[in-house]
Design a protein around this nucleic acid. Sequence first.
RNA 1: GCAGGGGUGGCGGAGCCUGGUCAAACGCGACAGACUCAAGAUCUGUUGGCUUAGGCCUGCGAGAGUUCAAAUCUCUCCCCCUGCACCA
Length: 934
Amino acid sequence: MEFSEIEQKWQKKWADAKVFEPDASESMKFFLTAAFPYPNSPQHIGHARTYTTTDVYARFMRMKGYNVLFPMGFHVTGTPVLAMAKRIAEGDKEIYGIFKDVYNIPEHIISQLNTPEKLVDYFSREIELGMKEMGFSIDWRRKFYTYDKMFNKFIEWQFMKLSEKGYLKKGSHPVPWCPKDNNAVGSHDTQGDVDPNIDEYVLIKFKFGEYYLLTATFRPETVYGVTNLWVNPAVNYVRIESNGESYIVSSDAAEKLKHQMKLEVKEQIRTVDLIGRSCKNPITSDEIPILPAEFVDPRNGSGVVMSVPAHAPYDFLALRDLKGSSFEKYSDRLIQVIELSGYGKYPAKEISERMGVANQQDRKAEQATEELYRAEAHGGKMVAGKYKGEKALIAKEKIKQDMLAEGKALLIYDIINGPIYCRCGTLCVVKRVENQWFINYGDDGWKKQVKECLKQVRIIPEKTIVEYEYTIDWLKEKACVRASGLGTPFPFDKTQIIESLSDSTIYMAFYTISNYLKDVDAEKLSSEFFDFIMLGKGDAKRLSLTSGIDEQLLNRMREEFLYWYPLDSRHSAGDLVHNHLTFFLFNHVAIFPPELWPKQIVTNGFVLMEGKKMSKSMGNILPLREAVKKYGTDIVRFSVVSGADLSQDADFNPTMAEGIASRMGSIAMLVERCNEFPSDTANVDRWLISAIHKKVKSSAELYKKLELRDIAQEALYNAVNELRWYLKRGGKNRNSLREYLEYLTLLLAPFMPHFAEEMWEKLGKKEFVKNSEFVSIAEWPTHDENKIDRVADLSEELISETREDIENIIKITKVTPRSIYLYCASDWKRKLYTMAFKEKKFDVVMKQAMTDDRMRANPQETQRVLQQFIKNIGHLSSLVLTLRQEMEALEGAKKFLSVEINADVYVLPEEKAEGEHAKKAKQSTPMKPSIFFE
RNA sequence: GCAGGGGUGGCGGAGCCUGGUCAAACGCGACAGACUCAAGAUCUGUUGGCUUAGGCCUGCGAGAGUUCAAAUCUCUCCCCCUGCACCA
């Protein structure tokens, strides 16, 4: 089979017939979207998971008779595209390397992608081509980019609406910052793609003459245990002025603080003027000395540290290190603040001594600190100060708030996983951005409504619902604009750009009309326009006059919107639950009436490459188009969605691909040859037909729940195994095969549309299912309950188990039988069997059995057989074949069995056993005939 | 820390909600046989241990419990993975 030929053939036919370009119509609609791609690199096989899942679903719903819309656009908002284009323009070797080695893009093409526009243009085309090659049933007429003028207008409208509802808010916000670029940095802007982590410090003011020493701490609650301050004699200190107060900090700290508060650097402070002198603890009013310590890092916090030797190993060690110096007299002052079970009064001392930490330079000091901090945060209780008796963690927050309120402390932010450098080489700092705009997802009323909304959204997989609940509770203000990047200018401050997670929350609505807007001047797309289309406010006639857009067109768009909306199914990878998908709910709730809220959200796992996560550094990224070329579309489609449960990561590996291909080959071969088979029917035909109808029955349910893995298992692996068994058992009926294959082709169509089309065509005129031009739009089959044949199923089971038993005996006894006698159990045993299955308890069944003449006549035998049943009570099934059915089944399989085992086979009822056969024959039970070798 | 997911045979991975038909689907790998000059592909069989009659034993992270019966239910413990925002 030449895959690429088949693929191109059907993709062209679909395109020519415009089967995937739906408009509003009379029929039931189904509108689904997948998270649109971000075109700053080609897509790899991992991206295919979400889109294939969506497409399989789209195709299934289409076959179920829905008018299905599956559109696609491109998300270009934000800075990564800018950063990427810039790096290419600068000839960044790393980027060139990735594009060349991973994605096989020729160097002369890479070098051309040096502007955001060219980059977006190239990669979006690449991605679109890939999606087309994947056979996704996308309506490409509706494609747009998030920097399109018309889309900008839509987003502007969205923010107007949010503002009207009072969901926009202004405030200040700390962000990682490059002082040279004068811009916020994300992980893609840093050397080594490190994601800067920001945490807050409390700066406590220790009065020192006219000035204050600012000490930075994560643990303000330990302020009660401060015995001294630390400064590093090797560090430069400066006096800064801010808000009318003078502070002493390291000069490095002063540089950082500039970005978070207004300050002026006044003068150098010599450490000799500090060390040995005293300052005042603002909380306890204790006079405490300022002492030297080497562990103090000028770049951390303020470069001044408050010493709590009872609870901080470094402080304890530094004090201990002072022994023998002129400051020795201070070296064993310890003040307990926190009580911790498992430790005495001075945990820092204990842990340092236990771990044998030598001095403040010892690496073990770090370890000791980590361990102790964690323990105290976990189980510590205050034994000093205002919040005595409270948990340390709670007291910390309260003390912090108190000090801030009383002006005894300041709050600042720092990058805690630093130092982090911008790509330009500058050290990143934290900047407090003033006049930052937020979407206030913390609004309680809003949250409440979203929770209501969540109740009526179908979440697949169901278990992820708790994650949405959690995220809704946890969300607070979300900064929604940035100083740079592609996208939509913020309507209330045009110098700002709306950030990428905020402009992709209701864009699905835009697809409903995007194809009509291509020829409309974007300037005409006012708020009133969107109010009319999306919310039905105003009327078309009026709007037509004010906007200059044709009235009919306006009405048409309104109709399209109302037809397609609400969104029936939203698809993305599971990692977006915590942001995008929840924002998506919030914004729909804010802007649209409840009847237009989303109906369903589906999330899926990722794709692994041969068991490992794909990553640039591992060099194991498989570009999608390359995968398609190498393995074929249908195989790629099939493997990414069938490899694991929806929420689990699927593995892609070549062996799996080969396995799929070979099974497709088996099916294709039968499709081509099935008409050559005669029309002899046998028992096994009833079984085969039963099997396919069972499959059809279960498939629709599985498709609805998107349990694609199970469908894949059924429709490919099990199907091929069933066909094999059928042929092996001597099945050779043309009609049975055709019926099976016609149904099977339909079941496979959503997964493997190209292959299915080809099979559909090869099968020619359908005899058992409804025909149609394309299988892609064929009617989804319904099963025939009458063809599901439990007796046939059990008969086949009996045959296969009997064969296994025979082989087992041969294996153990190493006997080669010439003849095999199969003695089937009498009907009274079957009656007893059914009773045993129902009642399960020996005495109850026995009593019941005694009402039967046959059994009462042979109580001992009855008891023996019943004991056997009870022993294997779990193995009994609700239905057993009758003696006649069992014999018929085995008679029918005589030939099969004798060929398989290479012996003559005789099938008899147990009563017919004579001589030495008789004893053996008595042991027969239903579904387990006695086997006698001769 | 908070939240979520998970620990099953040589491996991947079902089963767990709704206990029994589970020595555990399906696949891969390995082994043996057929075909072949040979390799590959394909096909057939085997793949926890014991067993000369279809049986028995041990087993699903560890321990305890409920039950006639536990991979499945309950409790405790251990271990692993993911996410925690201004970033797509």
